[in-house]
Structures are given as structure tokens and as C-alpha cells.
Computed example of a mutant assay.
Amino acid sequence: MMALSIKEWYHMISNATIADVLLDRLIHNYHRIELGGESMRKRIKG
């Protein structure tokens, strides 16, 4: 699965208006959670 940053959407979609509409629908009610540190999966396996 590939994740695109918001800036990359405008490069992928040549029409800025359409990119705005799509992003508005996708991120209207989203919550962004950024995690840091080592993965717990790596700790358990290691």
C-alpha cells in the first residue's frame, strides 16, 4: 500500500480543483496519529 502526502496529490492529479475536492472529501473528518519509536513487532520478534 502506498501512502501519498497531501502535496503529492496535486502532482498526481493535474487539475488542482479536482484534487481539492477529492482531498476535502477524504480528510474532512479524519484524525492524524503520528507514532514514533521502534515498532513493537520488532521488539517481540527480536
Rank of each mutant, 00 (worst) to 15 (best):
M1K: 12
M1A: 15
M1G: 15
M1Y: 07
M1T: 14
M2R: 12
M2G: 00
A3E: 12
L4H: 08
L4R: 08
L4N: 05
L4A: 07
S5N: 09
S5R: 11
I6E: 15
I6T: 13
I6C: 02
I6L: 12
I6Q: 11
K7V: 05
E8M: 02
E8R: 03
Y10C: 03
Y10L: 04
Y10G: 02
Y10H: 03
Y10Q: 03
H11P: 00
H11W: 04
M12P: 00
I13S: 01
I13R: 01
I13D: 01
N15G: 02
N15A: 09
N15S: 11
N15Q: 10
A16K: 13
T17L: 05
T17F: 04
T17I: 09
I18R: 01
I18Y: 00
A19Y: 03
A19T: 03
A19V: 03
A19E: 03
A19K: 01
D20Y: 04
D20M: 02
D20V: 01
V21P: 00
V21N: 03
V21D: 10
L22E: 02
L22P: 00
L22Y: 03
L22I: 14
L23K: 00
L23N: 00
L23R: 00
D24G: 03
R25M: 08
L26M: 11
L26S: 01
L26D: 00
I27T: 14
I27R: 07
I27A: 08
I27Y: 13
I27Q: 07
I27C: 11
H28G: 05
N29T: 06
Y30K: 05
H31A: 06
R32H: 05
R32K: 08
R32L: 12
R32S: 05
I33G: 05
E34K: 15
E34R: 15
L35I: 12
G36M: 08
G37M: 08
G37F: 07
E38D: 12
E38C: 04
E38Q: 13
E38G: 06
E38K: 11
E38H: 06
S39R: 14
S39F: 13
S39K: 14
S39E: 15
M40N: 05
M40E: 07
M40H: 04
M40A: 08
M40G: 04
M40S: 08
R41N: 11
R41A: 13
R41K: 11
R41F: 10
R41E: 13
K42H: 10
K42M: 06
R43Q: 15
R43V: 15
R43D: 13
I44Q: 09
K45R: 14
K45D: 11
K45M: 11
K45Q: 14
K45V: 12
G46H: 13
G46F: 06
G46T: 14
G46K: 15
